Simulated assay, not measured.
Amino acid sequence: MAEPTAPLRCLIVDDDPLALQIVENCVANTTFLVHAGSCASAIAAAEILRTQPIDVLFLDVEMPAMSGLDLLRTLQNPPLVILITSSKSYAVEAFSHDVLDYLVKPISYARFLTAARKALEAVESRAVAGADAIAAPPNAEFTFVKVDNRLVKVPFEEVRYVEALGDYVHIVMGQSKLIVYTTMRAVEDKFPAALFVRVHRSFIVNLRRVQTIEDNTIVIDNKYIPIGQTYLREVFQRLNKF
């Protein structure tokens, strides 16, 4: 059994003092969150993220000098991100950055709590998956995953891609597909980094199975897989070295 989840460390970024205070109050009223810091600019947030462990980032979109979305483009390994904005028009672009949720001002506590619980569930599911995982030995050609009450062998070479769907992941191997109760983080830990790369919050791909890339989209066996903005640099670096 996984250990109980510690309070999630939250960083709040918003140049509107009133909005900043509202989110701080929401965090203070939520038992599974802890306030790790607040700042009024994305530039200051980048420094905090570089030097402190942060689990959840509450990030305003519209800020001077550097927007929230600009900040996300610079992060190699972002924490869970919940965007905050006064305009719904950013919703489509926001989710292309693999954010967890999207809050529109004025923020109610009920809506805030819904978003916060998504973050808690994401962290808890990682913990459960990590506790149940059977790690592959170094240089292994396969691993085992738990499907229902069975352990199923997964040869790494046969995997095309892994897709996250809710609390499960789909491991796609040619015409077959395994549905596993786990998280993408657990898959990253189990699958060899030399062969697999995270390209989106919801996708991990086998580099040897990539057929084409166009408009930040990977094609594998006629499956069109988006490359998230926060993963672009690493994906193309990996492909250039592969």
Rank of each mutant, 00 (worst) to 15 (best):
L232D: 13
T85M: 08
V13C: 03
V81T: 01
R185F: 14
R111D: 13
M63T: 14
T5I: 06
K146S: 13
V92L: 10
D55M: 13
L75E: 10
S89Y: 15
P64T: 03
V210S: 06
H200N: 02
H97D: 09
I12E: 15
R201P: 00
L49Y: 13
I43P: 12
D148H: 07
A136I: 08
P79R: 05
T30K: 01
M1D: 02
S67E: 03
A28S: 12
A135M: 07
V34W: 14
L11A: 02
I54F: 04
E62T: 15
V92I: 14
Q229S: 10
A186P: 00
N25I: 08
L80F: 14
K153T: 13
K223M: 14
E141K: 12
I43W: 07
T230D: 12
T217M: 04
R209V: 01
P53W: 15
T217A: 13
R238Q: 11
E3R: 06
L113R: 04
Q175T: 15
A140Q: 00
L18W: 12
D221L: 03
E124W: 10
R73P: 03
D14H: 15
D60I: 08
H170W: 11
S176I: 13
L178Y: 14
M66K: 09
G174Q: 09
P53S: 03
D14Y: 12
N222S: 15
D167A: 06
A119C: 02
E163P: 03
T143A: 12
N206M: 08
K88E: 12
A186N: 04
A36I: 01
Q175Y: 01
P137C: 05
A164L: 11
I179Q: 04
R50E: 08
A94Q: 08
I227Q: 09
E163V: 00
P64E: 02
Y168W: 11
F191C: 00
P53N: 07
S86F: 01
C26I: 10
V104F: 03
V235P: 03
M184T: 05
A110F: 14
R185D: 03
T212N: 02
R73S: 04
N216A: 08
A46M: 15
V23D: 02
I54T: 09
A119N: 03
Q76N: 04
R201A: 01
N25G: 13
D189N: 02
A110E: 05
E121T: 09
M66Q: 05
T85E: 10
A119G: 15
R73F: 04
V61C: 01
A133L: 14
E24R: 06
D132C: 01
V180Q: 01
R126F: 12
L8M: 07
T182L: 00
C39G: 11
Y90L: 15
A46S: 02
T212P: 06
H97Q: 15
L151T: 00
